[in-house]
Nucleic acid binder design. Sequence first.
DNA 1: CTGAAAGCGCTAACAA
DNA 2: TTGTTAGCGCTTTCAG
Lengths: 340, 340
Amino acid sequence: MSPTMHDVARVAGVSIKTVSNVINDFPHVRQTTRLRVMAAIEELGYRPNLSARGLRSGRTGVIGLAVPELRQNYFAELADAVIRAAEKHDLGVLVEQTSGDRNREIAAVTGAGRLRLTDGLLFSPERLGQDDRHLLSNSFPFVMLGERMFGGPTDHVTMHNVSSAQAAVEHLLAIGRRRIALIGAHPDQREQVRSADLRVKGYKAALEAAGLPLDPQLVRVVAPWHRENGAEAMRDLIASDIEFDGLFALNDTLALGALRALGDAGRRVPDDVAVIGFDDIDEARFSIPSLSSVDPGRDEIAETAVQLLVERINEKGDEELPPRLIKPEFRIVARESTAT
Amino acid sequence: MSPTMHDVARVAGVSIKTVSNVINDFPHVRQTTRLRVMAAIEELGYRPNLSARGLRSGRTGVIGLAVPELRQNYFAELADAVIRAAEKHDLGVLVEQTSGDRNREIAAVTGAGRLRLTDGLLFSPERLGQDDRHLLSNSFPFVMLGERMFGGPTDHVTMHNVSSAQAAVEHLLAIGRRRIALIGAHPDQREQVRSADLRVKGYKAALEAAGLPLDPQLVRVVAPWHRENGAEAMRDLIASDIEFDGLFALNDTLALGALRALGDAGRRVPDDVAVIGFDDIDEARFSIPSLSSVDPGRDEIAETAVQLLVERINEKGDEELPPRLIKPEFRIVARESTAT
DNA sequence: CTGAAAGCGCTAACAA
DNA sequence: TTGTTAGCGCTTTCAG
C-alpha cells in the first residue's frame, strides 16, 4: 500500500496532526517542523488519500457534468470550458453522458450512481422538460444549464435565446434578405420552453418588427440537430421550390449540414443564400464559406456555472440564497456566409 | 445529512450488515428481509456514500482520462467513446485536460492531484516523450494511449500509424496522383516516435514502393495540428508555386483547414488536388467536399483501453501480466475528396 | 505550537 | 441467514 500520514509522521518524528497541518497549509507550524514534514512526504512519495479526506470532510473535490454527448461539438466545447473553470477552483470534473436517454437524465438529477461521488452537479438536460421540475431539489448543490427547464428551485445559467435569435435574423435582414428560412424548429408543439421554440420566437419577432410576413413553408422542423439532418432539411427545402435568400439555422451543426446541401445544389453562399447559425463552435470559423453565428457566451456560461456551483457548495446551511437565473451577453459573429 | 446504512438498518429492523448484503447483492439474504431493506432504502432515499466505500474497499469506481483538450475533435470523440466503454464496466470517468502543458502531464502520470481519486488512468500524452518513460511505473493501473512513448512498463493501446499512413498515400496513388504533398510533419528532428514521424514514414514508404521520388519541398512542417495551421501551410504551399496534385494531411483538422485554403485559392478538390486526412472525425463526412480519411479504429481503441485498465485494476498482486501493446485494425474511408 | 483520540460511512472478518 | 465489530486514512476538537 501507499504510505499514509502515519508513515510520514513517523519518518518526520512528529504527530499525525502536524502532518495534517502542513498538508492543509495551516498557519501555526514552525518552519523547521514544516520542512522536516515536507522532506518526509517527498521521501516516501506520500499522496493524501482522497477517499478518506472525502469521507471525513464531506467534500470530494469533484463536480459532475452531465451532458447528452461529447460528440456534439457544442458539448465538447462546453465540457472543455467547464473543466478549465473548475480547475481554477481546484475541482475535478466527472463527465457523465446521458445520451439523450430520459432515464439516465433522471438518474443524474436524482443523484443515483456515480455522481454521488461529487460535491455538486452541472446538468444540461435534453429529454427532461418543464414538467419534470419536481425531480429537482435544492438540497444538493446543483446548477441547471440550457433552456429545457425554467423556474426550478436551483440556480440556472442559460442564454438570451429570444433576443439573440432575433438579432441573428436582423443581421440577415440588414444585408437585404427578405425570404428567410429557418431550420431546426421542434416537432412537438406542446413544449414551449426550449431552445428551438425560443429561437423560433426570436425569428418571428424579427420578421414582425421588419413588417415582413411569416411564411410557414420557410420554417422547417428538424430534430435532432445533427449535420445530416440539417443537410436533409435543406435538400427538402430546395426540392420544394420555395424561394428563399436567407437561412437561420438554429445551431451551427445544422447550418454546416445545410451549407453542404446548398453547395451540392449549386446555390452560392452568401450570394444566393446568406446563412447564419447559432453557438459559434470552433468549426464555424473554418467551414467553406466560414459561417456567421451567434456566440451565446459559452465561456462565460461555463465560468458562471462553476462559480455558482462553488458558492452553493460552500453555502452554510442557514444562509440559503434564492435560486438565481443568469444569462451572459451574446454576440453576433459575422463571417463570410453573411458577407455583403 | 443524508441517511446512512445505520438509518436504513434501524428502519428495516435489521443490522447494518444485512443492509450491506442487500446493497451489494450478496446471495444469502432471505427474500422477505431483502424486500424490507429495499423498502427502507426507498423510504429514506438512502444512497451509499462512495467516499466511505472507496476508503474501505480501495476502489472508487472512477477512472481518469487525461487528454490534451476536448476542444480538439479527436479527443472529444475519444472521450465520448471512453465514457461509453467505462459505463459498461460501471465506471465513471474523471476527465483531466493537460492543455499541452508538460508539467500537467507529469502531474497526471505521477498521480498528483485529483486523479488520486481514481482507480486507474488512461493517458494520452502530447508533451511527454520517449525520454520520460522513467516517470511511468506499473504500480498503479495505467494504460498509455497514442504514440509518444513506447516500450514503457504499462499497457499501451495505439494504432498502426505507419501502415495506415502508407495505405492512405497508396489510396492517392491509386487514383493517379503523383505529386503528393504532406502537411503536418513535426519540426523537431530528434524525436522519432510520434504520430507525425510514423505517418511521415508511411508516406515515404508508399512513395518508395511506387518508385516515386521524395520531394522535400512537398513535405511541410506544421505544429500544432490545428485548422488554422493547416490552412496556413496550404496557403504557403500554393504560394510557393510547387506543383502538386495530392495531399496527405496528418490529421483531419489539418486537412479541413487545407481544404479551406484550397477553396480560397480556387483549386478544385478532388479535380486539381485530391485530399486525404487521418482520424476520421465526424466532421469529415460533412465538409465540402466530404473528406477521405483513415479510421484508426477509435471506438476499438477506447473499448480496448478500458478493458485493459479494468483487467489491471482487478489484477491480484501476484499474477502480473507483462505490458501489452495493442493496435486495432485501421480502415481507409474514401469520400469525395479523393473521388475519381 | 503539537499530540491524542474520536469518528466520518462503509466493508468484511468472525460469531452467533 | 444475520449480527458484531474492527478498522480504511483522514480531519478535527480538545488538551497539553
